[in-house]
């Protein structure tokens, strides 16, 4: 009985799929015509042409139109509803559609929350991954091929994209340097949080950690002749200590280097170019009373253990010698005193 029922299901599936291949051909009767379009009430023409080759190259090339557009059950059909990817991409689905944490992460992300709250402009899966053009992220034409990510995010976040494109990171990405960060390297992918939420990778509390993921690793940074001790020296600085103590007002990496408009110190437009440092340090809420001498032409990231720091290095060394010798001397004195006391006590007995 059981075997029979399996057979029935198998036959049903077989028939179903063969029927759907036909359905695709049916769809193409209309949708392969380049001039086909739908007129909206506003008068806008919405093209309805679908390039079959796009689907053929996408990861869904073995799927049929109605696998996703499951609300179509007659021809001609009405305006289709937005496709719900979760129909296949759920844990334990039988068709083998990839499923992971990202769906839950998305639901709790700033984008997912906005969608839940009824923001129609907020992105759903298709806005970043494509609708018919869901290519593998390894394909250069994919919307989320690493080099294309800034542009994909930029379709909504246009002003930020404009700034990022000109920044040192943006230019490096355009030049094909894969170690350079795109949006998602700092902000996260499916789990993007509001930038001022504590969970966000770019929040005041966490941004220095996020920058350190690259700027603290020799492997990434040495290649491009960037100093690796930037993260360690920041942590040692009063700003870094304050951050570890939970202060929300101390400067973090982005306070001085900017968020998206990060540029090298040689770039005259950079916030850390020597000419611009007084303005950067003297920001409202930071050191508005800073004198020009305070902030101009100085080393900012000080590493007392490196000879490059000059006098600071020698002061640090001198104090180390002084501290060790004084303490050894005092401890020796105490030891001798105790020893002599013990001897005296024994002699009395």
């Amino acid at each position: 009985m059981k075997q029979l029922s399996f057979l029935v299901i198998f036959l049903f599936l077989l028939c179903g799929s063969s029927a759907d291949i036909q359905a695709l051909e049916k769809c193409q009767i209309c949708h392969s015509k380049k001039e086909i379009h739908r007129a909206e009430e506003t008068g806008r023409k919405v093209p309805l042409y679908i390039d079959e080759s796009i689907i053929a190259r996408s990861v869904h090339n073995d799927k049929d139109c109605t696998d996703c557009h499951n609300d179509i059950n007659e021809i001609p059909h009405k305006v289709v509803k937005k496709v719900n990817c979760r129909r296949c991409h759920y844990t334990g689905n039988p068709v083998g559609a990839p499923d992971g944490k990202m769906y839950d992460q998305y639901e709790h992300s700033v984008h997912g929350m906005a969608v839940l709250n009824g923001n129609e402009k907020a992105p759903v899966c298709q806005d970043c991954h494509g609708d018919h053009d869901v290519y593998s992220h390894k394909t250069i034409e994919s919307k989320f091929y690493w080099q294309n990510i800034p542009k994909t995010c930029g379709t909504c976040h246009m002003d930020i994209y404009a700034v990022y494109k000109e920044s040192t990171h943006g230019r490096a990405v355009a030049d094909g340097i894969k170690d350079a960060p795109v949006c998602s390297d700092c902000h996260g992918e499916h789990n993007i949080k509001k930038h001022n939420s504590d969970e966000s990778r770019v929040s005041d509390a966490r941004i220095s950690q996020t920058c350190t993921e690259c700027h603290g690793t020799q492997g990434v940074v040495n290649k491009y002749n960037i100093k690796t001790d930037r993260a360690a020296t920041f942590e040692h600085s009063f700003h870094g200590v304050g951050l570890q103590m939970g202060s929300k007002t101390v400067a973090n990496c982005a306070s001085c280097h900017d968020y998206h408009d990060i540029r090298g110190e040689d770039d005259p437009k950079s916030s850390v170019h020597p000419d611009n440092i007084p303005k950067t340090c003297g920001k409202e809420g930071c050191h508005p009373g800073a004198s020009a001498e305070f902030s101009s032409g100085q080393q900012i990231h000080i590493n007392p253990k490196s000879e490059e720091s000059g006098i600071i290095y020698y002061i640090s060394k001198a104090f180390l010698v002084l501290t060790v010798s004084v303490l050894l001397g005092l401890l020796a004195f105490i030891a001798m005193d105790l020893f002599r006391r013990a001897k005296n006590a024994r002699a009395k007995r």
């Binding site: 800073a290 080393q299 600071i312 104090f319 002084l322 501290t323 005092l330």
Partner: peptide, 29 residues
């Protein structure tokens, strides 16, 4: 600190930090 060049502050901080530790250890020991 705002009244001086920044390396004054850096030198001051290094000395303050190191001498602070030396003084604390001397007192405690």
């Amino acid at each position: 600190k705002e009244l001086f060049p920044k390396y004054f502050y850096d030198i001051g901080r290094e000395m303050h930090s190191d001498e602070g530790l030396l003084a604390t250890l001397s007192i405690v020991i």
